[in-house]
Simulated assay, not measured.
Amino acid sequence: MSGHSKWATIRRKKAVIDSKRGKLFTKLIKEITIAAKQGGGDIDGNPRLRLAVDNAKAANMPAENIERAIKKATGELEGAVYYEVLYEGYGPGGVAILVEAATDNKNRTVAEIRHAFSKNGGSLGEANSVAWMFERKGIITVKRNSMTEDQMMELIIDSPVEDLQTEDEFFEVTTSVENFESVRKALAEKKLEIENASIQWIAKNTINVSGETAEKLEKLIEALEDNDDVQNVYTAADFS
């Protein structure tokens, strides 16, 4: 999963920039709104909402913003209705790409996504054209601080963790969707500093990209992520 970890590093750096632009808060609010709309506004009874709120708090989102998003979703306040949409396509080098979006206008969003693909050397595909190349996994990013990989391994040895990647500043823990919540809770109980935890699409196989192809692919992904309706972008590229 080296390719995924490399892109996780890129995404992590970009998240810092996004927070300055306010884009990160917009994406987090949409996730809170959708989670509360689907499963109710009770954090204790809605795991997806609890996760969204935890991620929002980790990003230092004000509590009143979180509460307002939940109230809009449950009808206590007026607010937009968001729909979850999954777009599939190919980027430069034939790399498969999945785009998760949350939009209040599907026609507008699909037009913008199609434009981003075509402008940056890619093409938007039909439903199920590339989704079969990916699988859902739980990804938990933990700050390293001064912890070694061996110390981290000791902490997770008894947990149902599928993979551990070590980067300069963080650990990336991979779990199955079924074990995601239990592993997240176990890491939190061990007082580890969780930066982010989410269910993501991970490519079953990756394509190595470098040079001009990698540069073009990064531009396409950045163009997609700059769209206010886009929540996440996943690629089957190995940037290592």
Rank of each mutant, 00 (worst) to 15 (best):
A58E: 08
V173I: 09
M147K: 04
N46E: 06
T103A: 05
I202P: 02
T166S: 14
V85T: 12
L187Y: 12
L192Q: 03
R50I: 01
E112T: 14
E167K: 02
A101I: 00
G91R: 01
A69H: 00
N46I: 13
T206F: 07
E31Q: 11
E195S: 01
M133F: 05
V99W: 11
K216E: 12
F25M: 06
E193N: 06
Q151G: 14
L187H: 03
S182I: 15
A186V: 09
G91S: 04
R11K: 13
A102Q: 06
W201V: 02
E189T: 15
N65R: 05
I10K: 07
F239E: 03
V173E: 02
G94T: 00
E167G: 09
E178K: 00
K13L: 15
A127P: 04
S129L: 02
I34D: 09
Y90N: 09
S123H: 07
A203V: 05
T166W: 02
T174K: 03
V230A: 10
D54N: 12
T166G: 11
L98F: 07
I156G: 11
I70C: 03
K143A: 12
A35H: 01
K191I: 11
N105E: 10
I97Q: 00
T9F: 12
I194V: 11
T103Q: 08
A197I: 15
I29L: 15
I199M: 08
L187I: 01
A8S: 11
N208R: 15
A35L: 04
L217G: 13
E222F: 03
D54Q: 14
G121E: 10
E172Q: 04
I10F: 14
A186H: 15
I17T: 05
R144M: 01
E195K: 00
A8E: 09
N196E: 04
V16Y: 13
K57S: 01
G39V: 06
S2L: 05
T175P: 14
A8N: 05
V209F: 14
V99S: 02
A203H: 01
D150Y: 04
P92T: 06
P160D: 09
A36H: 08
G79T: 09
N46F: 05
I10W: 05
R184W: 14
E100Y: 05
Q231R: 13
N208K: 15
A102L: 12
N205A: 11
K57C: 00
I97K: 00
V161P: 09
N145H: 14
G3M: 09
A101G: 09
D168S: 10
V53R: 06
S159D: 08
V85W: 10
K106N: 06
S159V: 08
N120S: 09
W7I: 11
H115E: 04
T148Y: 07
I97G: 00
K37E: 15
E135T: 03
A80D: 07
N55D: 15
A58T: 10
V233F: 12
E67T: 02
R11L: 08
F170G: 07
E64N: 08
L155C: 04
I10G: 15
N227F: 00
D238V: 13
I113Y: 03
S210E: 13
E215A: 15
V81P: 02
L24E: 08
A101P: 05
K106Q: 11
